[in-house]
Design a protein around this nucleic acid. Structure first.
Length: 164
DNA sequence: GCCAACGTTGGC
DNA sequence: GCCAACGTTGGC
């Protein structure tokens, strides 16, 4: 008696993201050293929703340094966990403490990211020079979102044309 | 430090 | 639900 092989679980196409981090807090070198890092401290609902609802293990991440002398893309990473509550929201000593969030009903969810590789810094100004990247969400006027979607074409252009 | 742009809060 | 005030982000 042969059983029909279980069909492989339908795999959603890999998606891509740009995640901003202040290098003083977590730089690409920190990620390289640690291997993986929990993406703590996001306190914006739209960014949280990306982590909680959309990002999946294996998704590609452009690791971006922000609020620093040289803002820009510093390397590549990968989503490597499913969402879980950000522990810093429960820690009164953390700057990310949220007294209104309860363990039974956590408000802030995060995912872990795994180091892929460091690249030569691609400065923000350089990103703006390329017509192919003109529509990138992160480059939009007034954008402040710390996690933004990246299209496959943008990902391909950045990883193949702008990185060695 | 400046300031544009945006998100959140809270009075009404 | 409106919207003014306020706080935050983040490049410069």
């Amino acid at each position: 008696m042969s059983r029909a092989a279980t069909p492989p679980a339908p795999k959603r196409a890999r998606q891509y993201w740009l995640m901003k981090s202040e290098p003083d807090e977590a730089s690409i070198d920190d990620l390289a050293r640690e291997g993986t890092l929990p993406w703590t401290g996001v306190r914006n609902y739209q960014a949280r929703n990306f982590m909680r609802d959309t990002m999946q293990i294996g998704d590609g991440v452009l690791f971006y340094h922000s609020s620093c002398p040289e803002p820009g893309i510093a390397g590549l990473a990968e989503v490597c966990s499913t969402p879980y509550p950000d522990p810093t929201q429960f820690d009164p000593k953390s700057t990310y403490y949220d007294a209104a969030s309860k363990r039974e009903e956590p408000r802030w969810m995060l995912i872990d990211v795994r180091f892929d590789r460091k690249s030569a810094l691609i400065p923000l100004a350089a990103l703006r020079e390329h017509e192919e990247l003109a529509d990138m969400v992160v480059l939009r006027r007034g954008n402040r979102l710390s996690i933004t979607p990246v299209t496959p074409a943008e990902w391909r252009f950045i990883t193949t044309r702008l990185m060695g």
